[in-house]
Amino acid sequence: MTDVAIDRTRLRLLSPHELRPLTDRSDRHGGLRLAVHVGLIAAGAALVAAGRGTWAVVPAMVLHGWFLVALFAPVHECVHYTAFRTRRLNDWVGWLAAVPSLLNFHFYKHFHYAHHRYCQDPARDPELTPPAPQSVGEYLRRLTAINYWRARLAVADRVLRGDFAAFPFVPDRARAEVRRSMAAMLALAAAVAIGWAALDPWGPVLYWIGPVLLAQPILRAILLAEHTLCAENGDTLANTRTTLAAWPVRLVHWNMPYHTEHHLYPSIPFHALPAAHARLRPHLVHVARGYAPTHRAILRGLAAR
């Protein structure tokens, strides 16, 4: 991490009076957004069904897959316990929503807390393992999600064996819970795949595995834009990027593109992030008008090396 002195008072941009209404969690808001998301997944599945046996099934699978991989957004909210007011709803919805991408909720919770605590610190931020792409080839490989799937398998293998040496961010007291959660997740995923295949041999491929593989690069591109080319220090205003994404992206990703606002105030739930952005916008260092400008800048930098 770059050795710079951070004026922490500069990051206290909202007074307690301003912050209090923005941090109100809501089962109603969470339930409505979850219902919309489930409806989009159902609509995507219907398009896949309508396209079976034709080439139209491929774009339908990509769209359906986008809705599936975007379940990462409610997982992310549930990890912060901001998707719902009821704590148990956050735990159950977050755990189930993570299964389609084989992302274990309990493991990710500790991973993500460490990311917030040490954001953009190359030595301690687990999101920088592996580090940001250093070549065009690494960039393209990152977008294919090959690294993601290898990491998911490696993490599952180590956790099931009780080997947490590579995961110091998981405290000793939580390791048994993470191990049980991982085993349950894999058992559920296997049971669903096997049972589904028994009823419809192509079902898991067309409606789950194929769409998730095809669309995971969309999520990789979104996540790569959150911190790449930002400062490697503890200044949240400088080490994180907000992206002014189109409203469908904000809808499907639960306002996650307002990422600097989230890092500044993780207690603000997804439905209040637009209001937080309106107040914080003058202070933000990195604000991109869509994801394309950020990725063009990344590629220009990599091509110039």
Rank of each mutant, 00 (worst) to 15 (best):
residue 48 V to P: 02
residue 65 G to E: 00
residue 299 L to P: 11
residue 262 H to A: 00
residue 98 A to Y: 01
residue 275 A to N: 07
residue 53 G to Y: 00
residue 52 R to Y: 09
residue 85 R to C: 05
residue 74 P to C: 01
residue 20 R to T: 13
residue 53 G to R: 05
residue 189 A to Q: 05
residue 97 A to R: 05
residue 70 A to T: 04
residue 57 V to I: 09
residue 177 E to A: 12
residue 195 G to T: 12
residue 184 A to F: 10
residue 29 H to W: 13
residue 77 E to H: 02
residue 104 N to C: 01
residue 217 P to S: 06
residue 292 A to F: 10
residue 12 R to H: 15
residue 78 C to H: 10
residue 47 L to F: 03
residue 257 P to F: 05
residue 267 S to D: 15
residue 132 A to R: 12
residue 127 E to P: 10
residue 220 R to N: 08
residue 263 H to F: 02
residue 137 G to R: 09
residue 86 T to W: 11
residue 194 I to P: 07
residue 270 F to N: 02
residue 224 L to T: 06
residue 73 A to S: 08
residue 245 A to N: 02
residue 167 F to K: 07
residue 54 T to V: 09
residue 165 A to T: 15
residue 55 W to Y: 14
residue 160 L to M: 07
residue 31 G to I: 07
residue 150 R to C: 13
residue 282 P to R: 00
residue 138 E to S: 12
residue 137 G to A: 12
residue 192 V to L: 03
residue 9 T to Y: 10
residue 300 R to M: 06
residue 100 P to M: 00
residue 129 T to K: 15
residue 190 A to H: 11
residue 6 I to E: 05
residue 79 V to W: 03
residue 285 V to Q: 12
residue 256 M to I: 08
residue 28 R to F: 12
residue 86 T to S: 15
residue 82 T to R: 09
residue 14 L to I: 00
residue 213 L to F: 11
residue 34 L to V: 07
residue 305 R to L: 05
residue 62 V to L: 08
residue 13 L to A: 09
residue 80 H to G: 02
residue 81 Y to N: 15
residue 82 T to Y: 03
residue 129 T to C: 11
residue 24 D to Q: 15
residue 83 A to G: 12
residue 305 R to E: 11
residue 115 H to K: 07
residue 44 G to P: 02
residue 213 L to N: 11
residue 107 F to I: 09
residue 272 A to S: 13
residue 176 A to I: 13
residue 278 A to W: 11
residue 297 A to V: 04
residue 65 G to L: 04
